[in-house]
Nucleic acid binder design. Structure first.
Lengths: 217, 217
DNA sequence: CACCCTTATTGTTGGACAAATAAAGGATAA
DNA sequence: TTATCCTTTATTTGTCCAACAATAAGGGTG
């Protein structure tokens, strides 16, 4: 089965197929790889959930690239309780991306970045619900990570959104967001603007830890 | 179909099922939702590729949470034609994961880690081809990242493997691997063992930059 | 151009058998 | 008797096949 998926993937990459191109029909795939139609269908179902192909009746399978969207889907179903280990790992990852990255951050940050960060942070005061506030909170941190100008890092950060938002929501009330969180963000942006390495690391680390401390229970 | 997936997801969340619990058998799901077995199987296949369930014959479907690993599987496709920006971004990411992470590394590193790193590095001397050597090279760096004990970070690093290996291969010959690379690795492990922060950062940064410098053309 | 018909392809169902494996039962030895 | 190992059995998933429904492109007709 996994072998069949690999075959089809090889068909795509080695065949030089690009987004928009069509794959052979199910029947042809059956013949080419000597598999039953159900097996081929399950393989295609996997590629479909990966966001690599789009299948429609009569049309067939067309190559797409919606993997990023699928990655979000993955974590959007909160039906599953995120394991404690995952939480700890994600928080450690954030610490690396937002605290340990300070050299790059300080190197790349511009006045525009500072202004944007302040503005996003101000939106925290207008949030009507805790969920709204956590959305803004996440936008703030995303904007900070974006300062580095590294798309790979930014994509990874965005994928972690659902888990990060759970951490935020678990730790804070609407009131906390508009007071404590707002003030901490403001301080962080200030240290960034002043290029104060020590203060930045201290403030950001405290900020992340604070959000996480309540969660440990 | 998507409806059926939603049903099963509801079954998990509303049934309060947790990681380790079992789902009903395919037959039961067919009866409960009035669907054919192949349809149920395709729905389960989706959940499987999401990393939410693990299915084994006779055992049935058990709930797991490997979504993080799956999310990064998504990007193991299409390593063809990596753009220059991607290369630069990945290299920046590596710098974050391997250099800027030194605090965590120094905090977590054990004698076992040091021994493993030395052993992997020694394998570099036995490599027969440049491709073999780059495999070992990647294993060395993976083992280093693994020291942090963070599964999310390790998963991300593994995804970047195809791109990282391209960088390694482009920069080095078999001879370079067994002389320069081997020596640099050994030095890095030594600084890690001595907990020499300054030297570690300098050596590792130089090592990564050296591998990348030849690539910029 | 609008409409209908044909036809090819995917979507779903049911049934059959193979493969895997947990559970039950039986044989053997201490 | 008890424990251990092996065999058998039963259940569940894995794969295949055949049939029909649903969908939509393409062609023919007015």
């Amino acid at each position: 089965m996994d072998e069949l998926v690999d075959h089809i993937r090889a068909l795509i990459s080695e065949g030089g197929l690009k987004v928009g191109d069509s794959l052979p029909t199910e029947k042809e795939l059956c013949e080419r790889f000597g598999a039953g139609r159900n097996t081929v269908r399950e393989a295609m179902r996997m590629l479909k959930t990966y966001g690599v192909v789009k299948v429609r009746p009569k049309i067939g399978a067309v190559i797409i690239d919606e993997r990023m969207a699928r990655a979000f889907d993955l974590f959007s179903f909160n039906t599953l309780e995120v394991s404690r280990e995952t939480f700890v790992d994600i928080q450690g990852f954030r610490s690396l991306l937002e605290v340990a990255s300070f050299e790059t951050l300080f190197d790349k940050v511009t006045a525009r970045d500072i202004a944007d960060l302040h503005q996003v942070n101000r939106e925290l005061l207008n949030a009507k619900t805790a969920v709204d506030a956590s959305e803004v909170d996440f936008r703030f941190h995303t904007r900070l990570v974006a300062v580095m100008g590294n798309k790979a890092i930014l994509d990874v950060y965005k994928i972690m959104k659902p888990v990060i938002m759970k951490i935020m929501l678990k730790a804070k009330t609407l009131h906390t967001f508009s007071t404590v969180t707002y003030a901490e963000h403001a301080e962080i942006v200030d240290t960034l603007e002043r290029r104060d390495r020590t203060a930045y690391q201290y403030k950001m680390k405290s900020h992340l830890d604070a959000g996480f401390r309540h969660f440990v229970d």
